[in-house]
Amino acid sequence: MNFREYKIGSRMFGVALGGSMCITLLLPSLDIASVEATNVSMDKQLTAGYETGWNVYDPLMLGHHKPIKVLLKTDPTSGKAMEPEYAYVYEKGTPFPGGVNHPNNLGGRAQRLSLSIGKIGEAHSGAGAVFLIKTDDQKRAYIEDATITMGWNPDAVLKAAGDENVSHAGAGKTLFVREGCWWCHTLLPEQTQDWQVFGAPPMLGDFNGESPTAFGSDRKAPDLLHVGSRNSSREWMMLHFYNPRLVQPHSIMPRFDYLWGEVDAEGKKIDYAKWDSEFNAYRAGKRDVPPDVPTYAANSEVRWLIDFVLNMK
């Protein structure tokens, strides 16, 4: 065994690799860590919750243990009408998102406001919580735990909102990741040209607390970051997910009919084979109209996915 010059070589290697990691890891993380959260990122993380990629709370990625976003029109304690406002309901045991668990994720000012006025430091996931996004008198956004500040509890808020104002966008984002929508769709209008079609590119602070960001790198389909503003029709989404070729004959998007599950909204068993053969007959010109798409059940996976898509304004 004869080392000599290789000792020097190995040390040089350490210095080179260490130096490179210093520039590409340490400096950027310091820089990124100081980014101030915008209200967009507060909305995104409160909607999606702790994690929408693989995690121990939801190992099979079924969309469990996710928050619910509701549009609140009546005050849950007094029952009186109020200025409509979004509330993010974390039922008992639902893990909190990054910014609530680690408020320093929110960046200096938003962190201070959220802790001092918003009281998020006192939130406790064992008890559940209802979060709001508030702005102070100088229009600076922060997160507020309404369970602490106003005594709103999750059940009361869900009840006050009513089913039609409930969005399972957080569970839907899990499905977005699980079903690999991001292999075709991006969530990142580029800073150069294409935002004129797909909407404004995100800003520096629009991602704090979000995981995974699922930007997508390989675009074979329209960017979806603002799709809800382009097309807000549930009906269209339903047809399109069941079979994209119903509304767009040239689409290469896969069918997501299996997200309907076993039964439709009325509890009837869905006969996929029959639908298929009728659709084939339609395509072959043997039928004038395509078969009807079954209405999805209120707790079906596709409902969550549509909630998520329509929530991307």
């Binding site: 950027p28 994690e51 995981s211």
Partner: peptide, 11 residues
């Protein structure tokens, strides 16, 4: 569980 741009960049 690092999140946001840090996660995107490290990816």
């Amino acid at each position: 569980h690092l999140t946001g741009l840090t996660e995107a960049y490290l990816t």
